[in-house]
Design a protein around this nucleic acid. Structure first.
Lengths: 271, 271
DNA sequence: CGTCGCCTTGATGAACATCAAGGAAAGTGG
DNA sequence: CCACTTTCCTTGATGTTCATCAAGGCGACG
């Protein structure tokens, strides 16, 4: 079935997703998994592509990577949407600030994840994206991406599925925040981070929080102090070992139990 | 600019969006605004198309409309995703039920709005959709839609933008639920309904709630009793006149004030 | 007329926010 | 290198919003 083959297209990270047809000789779709694995979701960003000197990347100077330091803005609320962004390493938080100054962190985007899909329709960034640590980003100019998509609809398909996944992620989060209380929220959050870490080939048991307590609290719609207390509690209960920003999951079973039936968050736009 | 012209493509509801090219003679893209305005978002559903007897609709028997009565399921959590749905009239609620039985209403979809974009990637419905009243639906088989999209990428563009809009909607809701308390949530909800009503050519000051108090409460992550109290309070405060399910906004200024700076919800997928 | 679902209103309670104080680490400037 | 501030975090005490519990009203419908 078409749908299943396409699911695989998206799910199998290691497969070559696009072969250039005769029409697209000037734009390379070949993925260079080794040099650009986080971006491979698009099959677009071909840094260091060995076989194709005139890669999409080289041939379209608009596509560029850049590096942000902690606290720097990738884009600001109100900016015109020009690019879709892929995190190559590091991470950012997506922050909405209301006219009265209240803030809401809507998401964290880590390695391999894609931002700003929600702002395409409006054409304007509804939130700011701020680096949590030193972060490397790949920018895909949306107008160019779009024109490539016009010629290669399978690429559009992937883009669309990423948007679909982000919707599903938001919905899962809504369930978490709407129905679950602080312990379940926090446990789910830690497990989500662990699983995202694992997807990137790192340890799922031990990692550093790149975000502050305040960020976590705000994201989970809790007070900072509540998160602090939860960390202490989870430590004394033998679920976690926390030292500053470093976290080790001591008992993943108990932690999952705390997270309860809350459907695990599916990390946004990891393909 | 490309982007702007395409924004208009999506925003101008009355324009003809697709002209069949020579390649797509067997599939009609002409919109029949008069007979099928809610579905016109796709430029696909051409019920009663006068000029083209062999319409997309007729030529692809998979595309069908159907009618649901109050309480009936459009699809169930766990069902395979086969269609994208457009509400022609009436409305549905999107309901997630956790393993422990807790429920969360994720959204209400009313006339002209599109469901199930969030389930495309997974290929399975993560929630159930249940009719709030007698509801007429247009089903677009996703596999067929997709193959048309492959040939007509501008259609894919529209689909993608709808997904983008849905993401933005979810994010706005997250801000509302994360940062605002009950009065602001409820006021915002009423104003959102009013604005969606207006978009459909009905009165924005006076309308019927098609959902129960329980549904509203659950959607806003409040207790039923809290919503009940808010209604009473808003009535005595002269903001609303409520009689059973009928609502009249007495003072839209004060109501907006109550809603506060909470960014107005942008109704999902109304194009 | 009685039952049922839906809604309203009041009384109580709990989860979490807020307020407050202080500690530890990191940056800053001398 | 050391005072100094600042930021971030922790922990305790108190307060508030809203959930929960409970009782009853009201219309619908058989």
């Amino acid at each position: 079935m078409l749908m299943e083959s396409q699911l695989q297209l998206t799910d199998n990270h290691n497969s070559v997703k696009f072969r250039p047809t005769s029409r697209e000789n000037n734009v390379e779709f070949i993925i260079n998994q080794a040099s650009c694995s986080p971006c491979s979701v698009f099959g677009l960003c071909s840094h260091g592509d060995k076989d194709h000197s005139s890669s999409w990347h080289a041939g379209h100077p608009g596509v560029q990577s850049s590096t942000l330091h902690k606290g720097e803005y990738l884009f600001r609320q109100g900016d015109k949407l020009l690019n879709i962004y892929v995190i190559r390493s590091g991470g950012v938080k997506l922050l909405f600030i209301a006219p009265d100054g209240t803030e809401q962190i809507l998401n964290f985007y880590l390695r391999g994840e894609v931002l700003s899909l929600g702002d395409i329709e409006a054409g304007v960034h509804s939130c700011s994206a701020i680096a949590l640590e030193t972060t490397s980003i790949c920018k895909l100019p949306y107008d160019k991406l779009q024109s490539v998509c016009q010629r290669e609809p399978r690429l559009y398909d992937q883009l669309f599925r990423m948007a679909s996944k982000e919707i599903a992620y938001e919905q899962t989060k809504m369930v978490l925040l709407g129905q679950r209380q602080s312990e379940e929220r926090f446990a789910t959050f830690i497990l989500d981070l662990a699983s995202r870490n694992r997807k990137n080939g790192y340890s799922q048991r031990e990692f550093n929080l790149t975000m502050s307590r305040h960020d976590i609290a705000n994201y989970l719609c809790l007070a900072d102090e509540t998160v602090s207390r939860l960390m202490s509690k989870f430590c004394t209960d033998g679920l976690l070992e926390v030292n500053k920003r470093s976290v080790r999951i001591s008992d993943i079973g108990k932690l999952s139990e705390k997270a309860g039936v809350a459907a695990p968050l599916q990390s946004a736009c990891v393909n």
